[in-house]
């Protein structure tokens, strides 16, 4: 196995070695269902689709994904194991990527456990399964982008609480930038339309909504891939800069 794979395996196993994984999964499932059925009005809509389920994912991820990401590097730094990891024959990039992939796979597992609701809509009616699959895909990509942000901010501190709060705020801003309220504010500043489009284009929400409607546009996918790549690159830079602390 290559070093990335070995780091990935160790990291993923470590989630399940502590109660963190189980607590996270249970809370994720309860909240996902609560949002879908109560706030989303799953039954009242009378439509066999998963729109109410996917619509709340960004808000759910906003608090739960930083909780997964916060330990990625802050814990390594605090326990000193970062020194061990980075003096093994593993490149910094392999370590960053392996750890990120493990966190992403973990969120993927939690997401996969919501599959019964997919069966439920198929039992209740005749949904567009392609759109649902796209919705899952979009959700998963968005979780990856949140995690990459969290990975970078977790690398910047040895305190997990700080890492968590910074990540929530950063992700919140990245989501908000697509909201009319925020765009109006920039409009009021007299920014040119191009700049405002660029700000809107930075938003998680704009791209995630597009995918969750079942439209797989290459640009949306590319957005998330670039977002993840850029934040992971930043993670590596931050770790390299702050190794001595």
């Amino acid at each position: 196995m290559n070093p990335t794979g070995i780091v990935f395996k160790r990291e993923l196993a470590s989630y399940f070695a502590t109660p963190v994984a189980y607590v996270f999964i249970v809370i994720f499932l309860i909240l996902a269902m609560a949002f879908t059925f109560y706030l989303g009005g799953f039954y009242d809509r009378g439509q066999a689709d998963l729109q109410p389920f996917f619509n709340f994912h960004p808000w759910l991820f906003l608090f739960l994904v930083p909780a997964v990401a916060m330990r990625l590097w802050a814990e390594e730094r605090k326990s000193g194991s970062i020194e061990l990891l980075l003096t093994l024959p593993v490149t910094l990039w392999q370590a960053v990527f392996g750890k990120f992939l493990a966190a992403w796979a973990f969120v993927g597992i939690a997401l996969a456990l919501t599959v019964p609701i997919w069966f439920t809509v198929n039992y209740l009616g005749d949904p567009d399964n392609g759109a649902i699959l796209a919705g899952y895909f979009g959700s998963f990509l968005m979780a990856g982008a949140f995690l990459a942000v969290g990975s970078c901010l977790s690398a910047a501190t040895r305190n997990q609480v700080i890492a968590f709060i910074l990540t929530v705020v950063a992700c919140f801003l990245l989501m908000l930038s697509g909201f009319p309220m925020v765009l109006d504010f920039f409009h009021g500043l007299g920014l040119p339309q191009g700049a405002i489009d660029a700000i809107a284009g930075m938003s998680f929400l704009t791209h995630a909504n597009a995918i969750s409607k079942g439209v797989l546009d290459l640009r949306d996918i590319l957005y998330f891939v670039l977002m993840i790549g850029a934040w992971l690159y930043a993670t590596a830079i931050v770790i390299d800069m702050k190794k001595a602390d």
Binding site: A13, A17, S79, S81, L84, T87
Partner: peptide, 15 residues
Amino acid sequence: AMGYLPEGAPSYGEM
């Protein structure tokens, strides 16, 4: 080519 014991012998406590 090297074996290294960092100061304080850090490791992954949950393993």
